[in-house]
Simulated scan of single mutants.
Amino acid sequence: MFEYVISIFSLSFGPFLYMGQLGQVFSRLFPFKRGLCHAYWAPNFWALYSFMDRILIIVFRQLGWGLNDTATSSVTRGLVGDVSFAVLPQISAKTTFIITVVFQMASLAKLWRYPNFKNFIGSTILCGYSSFLFGWHVHEKAVLLIMIPFGLIATESLEHFRTFIILSISGLFSLFPLLFKATETIIKISIFVLWIVLTCLGLSRTFSTKSESRTTPKPVKSTFVYLLENVYIIGFVILQFFTGVVHQIAFSDGKYQFLPLLATSVYCAIGIVYSWVRFTVIYFFEG
Rank of each mutant, 00 (worst) to 15 (best):
M19S: 08
F13M: 02
I8S: 11
P43A: 02
G66C: 10
G66R: 13
Y40K: 08
K33F: 06
F9Y: 09
S50A: 15
F26A: 14
R34S: 03
Y40L: 06
L22M: 14
S27W: 06
M19R: 09
Q62Y: 15
D53I: 01
L67A: 00
S27E: 05
G35K: 09
F9T: 10
P43D: 02
G64V: 09
R34N: 06
M52T: 14
L22A: 12
V59G: 03
F9G: 06
Y18E: 09
S74N: 10
N68A: 00
A39R: 15
Y18K: 09
R61E: 07
S73W: 10
D69R: 13
S7T: 15
S50R: 04
I57L: 11
C37G: 02
I58N: 10
S73Q: 11
W41P: 07
R34E: 11
W65A: 05
I8C: 13
F30E: 04
L56H: 00
S12Y: 08
L11T: 08
I8V: 14
F13C: 02
Q21H: 07
G23P: 09
S7I: 06
G66H: 12
Y40D: 08
L29I: 14
F9Q: 05
T70N: 13
L48Y: 03
F51D: 01
L36A: 03
S73N: 15
L67E: 01
Q21A: 05
S74Y: 04
S7V: 07
D69A: 08
I57W: 10
G35Y: 03
L56F: 01
L67C: 02
G14H: 06
G35C: 04
S7Y: 11
A71I: 07
I57M: 12
G14F: 12
Y49F: 04
F60Y: 15
I57H: 05
F13T: 03
L11P: 00
F30Q: 05
S50Y: 04
M19D: 08
L63G: 03
I55W: 04
R61N: 07
Y49D: 02
F9C: 13
R54C: 00
S10I: 08
L36S: 01
D69P: 15
Q21T: 08
C37R: 12
N68H: 01
Q24R: 12
L63H: 10
L48Q: 06
Q21N: 09
A39M: 13
S10F: 12
F13D: 01
S50G: 13
F30D: 03
A47F: 11
S10W: 14
C37L: 14
A47L: 06
T72E: 07
F13H: 04
G14T: 14
V25C: 13
S73C: 09
V25Y: 06
F51C: 05
G20Y: 02
R54G: 00
R34I: 00
